[in-house]
Amino acid sequence: MTSSLRFRAAIVSIVLFAAFLGIWHISTRGTGTVANMTPEYAKLMGLTATAGKSAMPGPLDVGAKLWEHLKSPFYDNGPNDKGLGIQLGYSIARVGLGYFLAVIVAIPLGFLIGMSPLFSKALDPFIQVLKPISPLAWMPLALYTIKDSSISAIFVIFICSVWPMLLNTSFGVAAVRKEWINVARTLEVGTVRRAFTVILPAAAPTILTGMRISIGIAWLVIVAAEMLVGGTGIGYFVWNEWNNLSITNVIIAILLIGIVGMLLDQILARFTRMVTFPE
C-alpha cells in the first residue's frame, strides 16, 4: 500500500515536472520572424528582436549550461570565473564554520538558561531584543569591527543560526520530565553527570530540531551575505552572473542553492531521527 502510494506520488511528481518544463519551453521559444531588418542590423540586435525569442533562457539552454558546469565544477580562471563546485564549497565552508561556532555557543548557553531560572529570566530581555534583528543588519558593524569581509560573512551566519538553537536548547532542557530528573536525584547523580546522562538525551530531539531550523536559516542568509561581501561563494556567483546578464547561470545557481539546502536539511533530519526515542 505504502509502496504503491510512493509510486503514484513519484508519477505525479514526474508529470508535474514535465509539464513545468513544457510550459517553460513553449513560453521561451522564438515565435518566428517578427521584424524585417537588414542582416547586419539583425545580427546586432540578436534573436530577441529578430525571432521574438524570449530573453529568458529555455530549459534546453539551462540544461546544456548545467551539463557544462557539471563537467568541470572545479575550474579556476581567476577571481570572476570559478567553477560552481568551488563557489558552493566556499559557501558551505562559511556556513559550516559560522554554524559550528553557533553550536559551541548556543548549546551550553541554552543548557544554562534551561537549567537555571535565574539566568533564564536575566537573559530573556537580551534574547528578545537580539533575536528579531535581521542578520544582515549586523553586516556593517561586522565589517567595521572585523575588517574582513569573509569573516564578517561567517559572523553573520553565526548570529543568524544561534537563536533557534539557543531557544530550542533552553526549551528542551527546561521541559525535561520532572520524573527523570527525580530519578537522577534519588540516585545522587551529580549535576554534570545528570546534564549528560539525563538532560542531554532527553532534550536531544528538541535541540536537534533547533539545529535543523538553524541550518536552514544559515543557508538562506549566506546567499544574501555573499551578495554583499562579494569575492567568492554561491551568493556572489548569482550576483556576478546577474551583472553579466547570464540568466542561465542565475537559474542554475538557484537550482543548486535549493539542492544543497535540501541536503543540509536531510542530514540534520537524519541526526534528529538518530536521537529520537520512542516513549
Binding site: V183, L187, E188, T197, P201, A202
Partner: peptide
C-alpha cells in the same frame, strides 16, 4: 536525596533511551 532510599515511581519513570539493562545499570 540518598542512595539509601530508593523510590519506585507511580509512572515507572524509566529513561526511554536506555534499555532495561541500561536503566538498571544506570
Amino acid at each position: 536525596t540518598s542512595l539509601d532510599r530508593a523510590v519506585i515511581f507511580q509512572s515507572h519513570a524509566l529513561l526511554p533511551w536506555r534499555t532495561v539493562l541500561g536503566n538498571v545499570s544506570y
